[in-house]
Computed example of a mutant assay.
Amino acid sequence: MVGPLASLKVLDFSTLLPGPFASLLLADMGAEVLRIESPTRMDLLRVLPPHDRGVSASHAYLNRNKRSLAMDLKQPEALDVIKQLLQDYDIVLEQFRPGVMERLGLGYEALKAINPKLIYVSITGYGQTGPYKDRAGHDINYLALAGLSSYTGRADSGPLPLGAQVADVAGGSLHGVIGLLAAVIARQQTGLGQYLDVSMTDCAFSLNAMAGAGYLACGVEPGREDQMLNGGSFYDYYRSRDGRWLSVGSLEPDFMKRLCTALGLEELANLGLSPQPAPQKRLKDALKVEFEKHDFAELCAMFAGLDACVEPVLSLSEAVQHPQMQARELVTEVPRGDGTSQLQMACPLKFSQGLPQPGHIGATLGQHTDQVLDELGYSVERIAELRRAKVVL
């Protein structure tokens, strides 16, 4: 079986999370992805714990189905290899700071001259322009500057460090893939590629969605726990008697009525419909009291058959075993390459014609160097010369 993106061939120069997650999605959907890795400056994701049989689980997941060519891009012979690859690979994904690829002779203008159909995607923290373009940053910084952290968290304790990398994944990775595929469609019409400047901060800023729309159009500045969906209403998490948590999102009247009836608070159901803080606080306080009268298992059983938008906060181990996750086949077995397999999260996209089964976990550094150079016509002797000269690993 081939995936819907089987016609795409991608040179991936990225490391860590944003670029690799983007190319993981492409590879899962059938694209051929070749990672170009430095033999001297390791992708730190390779050593990130925890490890499975000496291999980083994160690296094994984020880089599955991709080949690895280890090559020193600072050497002239490496540029020759890239130029040859561009005859066949017409998408480049990179994640260096602005100007790095240009200094290596691998900028968009230089590579476009070799292949005008080239689609070139640059994922950076702050984009290719602006006073912050050369500034270092991480996910937490992008969320802070984009305004998202200003109304996320608790009023008395401030913003919370999120467990998921929202700016990296929802910003850089997903927006990068959306833009890349849009450029592919445009190329089908024009025959020409183009350059995509993807800023994780820009994309995080767009995730303000409702709060940002309200501020720009109406001047309403959101704060922590003062909006309907950020803790300023009953829409929140509630602790059980034994210290577990449940989520309550019973926004619609029918759901609110079922929630309150289940907890013996029928007379308070109308409070959930009020936009005013006082009724919301009264309802929220009452819900806290009632939830803390019951153990977690009792609450789960209470709401299991009740369509009230109340769900337990599950650990990862519990989420993996949940019937919904299992029915959706969100865990898959990926070959390690030694006859065994590793459990990984599956591609979440469901196509009626299906997707190809994962081929292998993330490759070792330079695992496919000889194979790729052989495909380009390099002799065994020439490959050995490049290895002795430390051009390739």
Rank of each mutant, 00 (worst) to 15 (best):
T124C: 03
T124D: 07
G125Y: 03
G125V: 01
Y126G: 03
G127I: 01
G127E: 05
G127S: 05
T129K: 11
T129D: 15
T129N: 12
T129Y: 04
T129V: 14
G130M: 08
G130N: 06
G130A: 08
P131I: 07
P131F: 02
P131L: 06
P131R: 04
P131H: 03
P131Y: 01
P131V: 08
Y132C: 09
Y132A: 11
K133F: 11
K133W: 00
D134L: 14
D134F: 09
D134I: 07
D134R: 02
R135S: 08
A136N: 11
G137C: 09
G137H: 03
G137A: 14
H138L: 14
D139P: 10
D139S: 09
D139F: 02
I140T: 12
I140G: 02
I140K: 01
N141P: 09
Y142F: 15
Y142V: 03
Y142I: 01
L143G: 01
L143H: 02
L143D: 00
A144R: 00
A144C: 13
L145D: 03
L145S: 07
L145I: 13
A146I: 07
G147K: 05
G147Y: 08
G147I: 09
L148S: 07
L148I: 15
L148K: 00
S149F: 06
S149W: 00
S150I: 00
S150L: 09
S150G: 11
S150H: 15
S150R: 06
T152W: 06
G153R: 05
G153I: 10
G153A: 12
G153H: 04
G153Y: 04
R154D: 13
R154F: 15
A155D: 09
D156H: 08
D156L: 13
S157A: 15
G158Q: 10
G158A: 07
G158D: 12
L160D: 01
L160M: 14
P161F: 05
L162F: 14
L162Q: 11
L162R: 01
G163I: 12
G163M: 12
G163Q: 11
G163N: 12
A164F: 13
Q165R: 02
Q165P: 03
V166R: 00
V166W: 02
V166F: 11
V166M: 10
A167S: 15
A167K: 01
D168S: 06
D168G: 10
D168Y: 05
D168M: 11
V169M: 12
A170N: 13
G171M: 09
G172Y: 02
G172K: 01
S173R: 01
L174S: 06
L174N: 12
H175K: 00
H175P: 00
G176I: 05
G176S: 08
G176Q: 04
G176A: 12
V177Y: 04
V177T: 06
I178L: 15
I178G: 02
I178K: 04
I178Q: 10
